[in-house]
Design a protein around this nucleic acid. Structure first.
Length: 271
DNA sequence: ATGGGCACCTGGCTGC
DNA sequence: TGCAGCCAGGTGCCCA
């Protein structure tokens, strides 16, 4: 999936086509997503104007006059802005038709994505209310990470990917941020020195910001709303580089499994 | 409270 | 050529 940079790239891409437009219709072709699309979803939106498109963690929030759509792209989802006559592809599960004649189309082969409509404050929705701070906010810093990690035995990589600790750091950028901070992914979170957490907070922000600038990372199927891939892949230091030389010290990059996810690191640069 | 494992689903690649 | 097996940008839930 899209991690935070890909979701942010998507948000920026769809915003100009959506903001200020009125929704004419919603076409749900496949309701069986991560959560079944509610039976009344398609009826709640038509006639409403899109006020804004925001992001919280990896969720896109389409803010309407009344309520909001909470959209997650899962592992393989993408949103594109298309003209009405664009041919349907496999896994094009849902369209939102706008009064401009354009439509927002959701494609998601694995169907791990989801859409919800809420009339309440989205921050209080069950998907959002337990989430930790945004990584690009000042709230994420070394002191915060050290406090949250105190006494915890979980590996620091899994700690960093825990959305109750900090949101938006997925499997690619967790490995990348730990590499840049010089921290072994296996190290118990509670045993990471405070100075290393300072570095980690900064490297997390850096890698996410740089990836956003590059339009995100395309490994397989991610495309932005204009159908373009992201270009950050060529700037990755460790992810999917097992056996290849470290870009800093030439040591072969190692691949291990943590929490059923692949982790990549340099055993020389990371301690 | 914390940590670990499973589940959801399709497609692409590898190796026999 | 066919097919079984494995892997993939996520995350909620259940259990010890």
């Amino acid at each position: 999936m899209p991690e935070l940079p890909e979701v942010e790239t998507t948000r920026r891409g769809i915003l100009p086509a959506l903001k200020g437009r009125r929704i004419q219709a919603v076409n749900v072709r496949e309701p069986r997503l991560r959560w079944r699309v509610a039976a009344d979803f398609a009826a709640a939106l038509p006639g409403q104007r899109v006020m804004d498109v925001r992001r919280r963690a990896k969720y896109l929030l389409i803010v309407l006059e009344r309520g909001a759509v909470i959209w997650h792209l899962g592992m393989s989802g993408s949103l594109r802005v298309l003209t009405a006559d664009t041919a349907l592809l496999p896994h094009d599960h849902l369209d939102i038709l706008l009064d401009s004649g354009l439509r927002l189309r959701f494609n998601d082969p694995r169907r791990f994505g989801s859409v919800h409509y809420t009339i309440e404050d989205p921050a209080q929705h069950f998907l959002l209310r337990e989430l930790g701070p945004e990584p690009l906010d000042a709230e994420l810093n070394g002191a915060y990470l050290a406090r949250k990690a105190k006494g915890r035995s979980v590996a620091v990589k899994q700690f960093l990917m825990n959305s109750r600790v900090v949101v938006g750091v997925g499997n690619i950028y967790a490995s990348e941020a730990l590499f840049r901070a010089g921290i072994r992914p296996q190290r118990a979170a509670g045993r990471v020195p405070r100075a290393a957490f300072d570095k980690l907070a900064q490297s997390t922000k850096d890698v996410l910001n740089e990836a956003i600038k590059s339009g995100g990372t395309t490994l397989r199927d991610y495309v932005d709303p204009d159908g373009m891939p992201g270009y950050f892949r060529q700037k990755l230091f460790v992810y999917e580089r097992a056996g290849e030389p470290c870009r800093l010290c030439r040591t072969a990059i190692k691949q291990i499994v943590q929490g059923q996810r692949s982790t990549y690191f340099c055993a020389s640069c990371q301690r």
